[in-house]
C-alpha cells in the first residue's frame, strides 16, 4: 500500500504484485510448460522430439473412451448438483437470518471436512452391509444386497454430495441479490410458482449457476480419491490413468499427454459454461 498511495488510482502496482507473480511463474507456469514439453518427448530424459505418445493416446479407442467417460462424469455431476442445490437456495432466500446462518454452516461443514472423509462416508453408506442396503433389505425392496460400490451410479451419488457445496455457495450468493419484488410481481400477475421459478428466478440466478457449474465440473472430473475408491479399478477416468501411467508404469510422456488432455477437457468445459451464460443473457 505504501506504493499504491503514490500511484494514481486505477493503476496496478507491479511491485506489490511481483512476489505472487514470480512465485506463479517459477512454480506454476514453468511446471505446466515442462508438462507440455514432456508430452512431446520420446522418453523422460527429453532424448528427442516425438509425437508417439499423442498418437498412442488418441489412436486407441480405449483412451478416447476414458476421456469421454471423464467429461460425462463431470456433466452428470453438474446436473445432479444443480437439481439438488436449487431447492436449498430457494429455502435459503425464503428464510430468516438464523436459518440462513444454519444453512451456510450445513453447506460449509462438508466442504471443510476433507474429500477423503466424504469419500470414506460413502463407502460406509454404499457398501454391501452399508446404510442403503440395510434400509432396502429391511423395507423388503430387495432380497439381495445391491452392489453400489464400484459402479458409476454409486460414484455419481457420492460425487453429488461431495461437490454440492461448490454449486451451493455461488448460487446462494447470487440468489439473495435477486430483488424479491420481481417474484412478487410475477405472482401478482397470475404467474404460477413453477412459471415464476422458470421465468424469473432461474434466468436471474444464471451467473451463480455458471460459477457453481464451473467449480463442480472442474472438481468432479479430477476427483482422484473418490473415483479410485468408490469407482474401483473397473471404472477408469483420466485422473487414475494419469496416476497409474506416471507412478506405476513410469511412462512420463504418456502420463503428460493424459494430463494435458485433462487440462484441455476441463478448460473446454469451463469455457462452454461461460459461453452458455453469454448466450442465455442475449436471448
Amino acid at each position: 500500500m505504501a506504493g499504491a498511495a503514490k500511484n494514481e488510482p486505477g493503476r496496478v502496482d507491479w511491485r506489490l504484485a511481483a512476489p505472487l507473480g514470480f512465485t506463479y511463474l517459477a512454480f506454476f507456469a514453468a511446471p505446466l510448460l515442462i508438462l507440455l514439453a514432456m508430452s512431446f518427448a520420446a522418453d523422460d530424459r527429453f532424448a528427442s522430439f516425438s509425437m508417439d505418445s499423442w498418437v498412442k493416446f488418441w489412436g486407441d479407442p480405449f483412451y478416447r473412451g476414458v476421456v469421454y467417460d471423464t467429461v460425462r462424469l463431470g456433466m452428470v455431476a453438474v446436473l445432479a448438483t444443480s437439481a439438488l442445490s436449487y431447492p436449498i437456495a430457494l429455502l435459503f432466500i425464503a428464510s430468516g437470518p438464523l436459518v440462513r446462518k444454519l444453512l451456510i454452516f450445513i453447506i460449509l461443514l462438508p466442504l471443510l471436512t476433507s474429500v477423503v472423509i466424504r469419500t470414506f462416508a460413502w463407502i460406509v453408506i454404499l457398501a454391501r452391509e452399508g446404510v442403503v442396503n440395510q434400509t432396502l433389505l429391511a423395507l423388503g425392496l430387495t432380497s439381495a444386497p445391491l452392489n453400489l460400490l464400484q459402479t458409476e451410479l454409486g460414484l455419481v451419488i457420492a460425487l453429488t454430495q461431495i461437490e454440492m457445496p461448490l454449486m451451493l455457495l455461488p448460487l446462494v450468493t447470487v440468489m439473495q441479490q435477486i430483488n424479491p419484488s420481481l417474484s412478487d410481481a410475477s405472482r401478482a400477475l397470475g404467474g404460477s410458482k413453477w412459471r415464476t421459478f422458470f421465468r424469473v428466478i432461474l434466468p436471474l440466478s444464471l451467473p451463480g449457476w455458471i460459477a457453481g457449474a464451473t467449480l463442480v465440473f472442474a472438481s468432479a472430473t479430477t476427483a482422484f480419491i473418490s473415483q479410485t475408491v468408490i469407482g474401483g479399478a473397473r471404472l477408469v477416468y483420466l485422473p487414475s490413468l494419469i496416476w497409474q501411467q506416471s507412478m506405476v508404469v513410469f511412462d512420463w510422456p504418456f502420463a503428460a499427454v493424459a494430463s494435458v488432455t485433462l487440462l484441455v477437457a476441463v478448460l473446454s468445459g469451463v469455457m462452454l459454461f461461460s459461453l452458455l451464460g453469454r448466450f442465455a443473457r442475449t436471448t
Binding site: 494419469i242 485433462l262 487440462l263
Partner: peptide, 12 residues
Amino acid sequence: LILPGLSYGLAA
C-alpha cells in the same frame, strides 16, 4: 482454482 490439480501435481 480451476485448472485440474492432478495435472499440476504431475507437472510439479
